[in-house]
Design a protein around this nucleic acid. Structure first.
Lengths: 194, 194
DNA sequence: AAAAACAAACCGACTGGTCGGTTTTTATCG
DNA sequence: CGATAAAAACCGACCAGTCGGTTTGTTTTT
């Protein structure tokens, strides 16, 4: 099939992630990405109709991995789900590590670019809804104390995002996987009925 | 005095904040800033030796306001300090509102630019230390339960940053001042001895 | 008059994107 | 199977515009 084509596409996206992360969306030029990928500009614009479309494609892929993780924990009880998230944190920090600035880049672009915002806001709200439902479920199951699900969901997402932000600014300032794990435990503990 | 000079400088910084926020550091060109300020490029480079230096100056000013707020609450007890922070949140969201993307911009630039990182990391660590000390003080005073001060400090900062991030992405998705206030209350409550 | 503050033309490096042409892959058919 | 032509993938020079920063000259302040 078009195996070569697929390889080129992967080369482009890989290089783009690398360069967007290290230099930022604006500073990483299409020429740079092509050079890093070892392909020509023609090849680039054969696969993506613009730099922005490439960015959108990366965002899509990123959201995909999160969605998959969520799908994987569909059958569990609410506390089990949170515990699994606790376990997932070190993995997230490890793999996201280099791509972390990308994540922030998404945020920033989204706040300024209508198209990218549209692509970001829907999944974001979906995640919020997901946590809200999960907490409601926990309360209904009787395993969680009677908190405000909406508010608690926001707090959980705040904690997660705040941790990512801090680990980005000061990677060596703390053992972030450990902080993340303990933070989650603390949050869950304050949710669990005694 | 050099009153006219000072006015020009203010015009430049005001315009820069406005444009950096709405368009981002890279996209807001020096020409744009000059046009917005109604001055010439010569005037710009008379006051700032580079675009980066202007950015650093803005960062400095921003940190100054935070430091002032911290200084203002030096005499209070630990719980009082937190309660005051609760009160300060609506103000922060109101004033920071438009400048919020700037805040993120600082973060992103810091993670990539050694000079800006140096200027950011010191205050960041100072704030972390401040919260850690504050919590230790609360524990010593007997008003807080016996938590890990380091960890709790990270969590508080996470929550604050995460809230800012979320309000930036989805300003109309929730009443953020309210969420912020309730989150703080919830955090303090879980800290307070019953 | 000296110095500080400002204006505006100018520079070279670099940007995202285009385009005509070349190579490689795939489908078709004798 | 091998020849062949169409289609897909790719190349790299090129363009028009933008960028941060410099320079030269003018106005304002002291």
């Amino acid at each position: 099939m078009q195996q070569r084509s697929e390889e080129t596409r992967v080369k482009i996206t890989d290089s783009a992630i690398k360069l967007f992360s290290s230099s930022g969306y604006n500073k990483a030029s299409v020429d740079d990405i092509c050079a890093e990928a070892g392909i020509s500009k023609g090849a680039f614009y054969h696969h993506f109709k613009s730099k922005q479309e490439l960015f959108l494609a990366l965002l899509d892929g990123w959201l995909q991995t999160i969605d998959n993780a969520i799908d994987a924990s569909k059958e569990l009880t609410a506390p089990e789900t949170f515990m699994q998230m606790t376990e997932a944190f070190p993995y997230i920090f490890e793999t996201a590590g280099d791509g972390l600035p990308m994540f922030l880049e998404f945020w920033l672009q989204a706040s300024r670019d209508e198209k990218i915002w549209q692509a970001s806001i829907a999944p974001y709200r979906r995640y919020h809804k997901y946590f809200t439902t999960l907490i409601k479920k926990g309360v209904a199951e009787g395993s969680f104390v009677d908190v405000d699900p909406e508010l608690t969901s926001r707090m959980i997402m705040s904690t997660a995002m705040g941790l990512l932000l801090q680990s980005l600014l000061d990677p060596k300032g703390a053992k972030w996987e450990k902080v993340a794990r303990e933070s989650t435990t603390m949050l869950v503990n304050s949710l669990l009925k005694k």
